[in-house]
């Protein structure tokens, strides 16, 4: 059984990174193709769930030493902050801004404040689902 575990665990690590990267991709794709913060976040969660299945809770917690409730809070702040930024400019709440920027590494790319908002969504989704899973898993 031990060997199987090792194989499983190694396999999982690989799959985890694949799913994780995919989730990041999905997240960025959101504005133009199917995807976005939700799905991205949920996929990340799914990846972590996979880790949980292969390893035990403690190991995963060690590997990801965040307080996920704080992640939730940060996500919410980010989302709210993006939306509330418009208050500073006295335009209606949630008025997004976007422009093309010439960034050193990426070349000309379109940056949209909606993306920041979506990042907040991503964090909240990851944070709260992982919190749930951790607490349920930790309950004996």
């Amino acid at each position: 059984m031990k060997t199987n575990d090792v194989i499983l665990q190694t396999g999982t690590k690989v799959v985890f990174f694949i799913i994780f990267l995919f989730s990041i991709h999905i997240f960025f794709a959101g504005h133009f193709a199917p995807g976005g913060g939700f799905v991205g976040g949920l996929l990340t969660t799914a990846a972590i769930v996979l880790l949980l299945l292969a390893f035990d809770l403690k190991t995963v917690q060690k590997a990801l030493p965040f307080n996920f409730m704080i992640v939730v809070a940060v996500g919410l702040l980010l989302a709210l902050g993006t939306a509330a930024g418009s208050i500073l400019f006295d335009v209606p709440f949630f008025t997004h801004a976007y422009d093309d920027f010439n960034l050193p590494l990426f070349g000309v790319s379109s940056l949209h404040t909606a993306m920041i908002f979506d990042a907040g969504v991503y964090l909240v989704v990851v944070g709260s689902t992982i919190t749930m899973i951790q607490t349920i898993g930790g309950d004996s």
Binding site: I70, A73, L76, L77, L80, A84, F93
Partner: peptide
């Protein structure tokens, strides 16, 4: 928004 904001901060 304000109660929402404070709720988040309390977390």
């Amino acid at each position: 928004i304000l109660p929402f904001f404070f709720a988040i901060i309390l977390l």
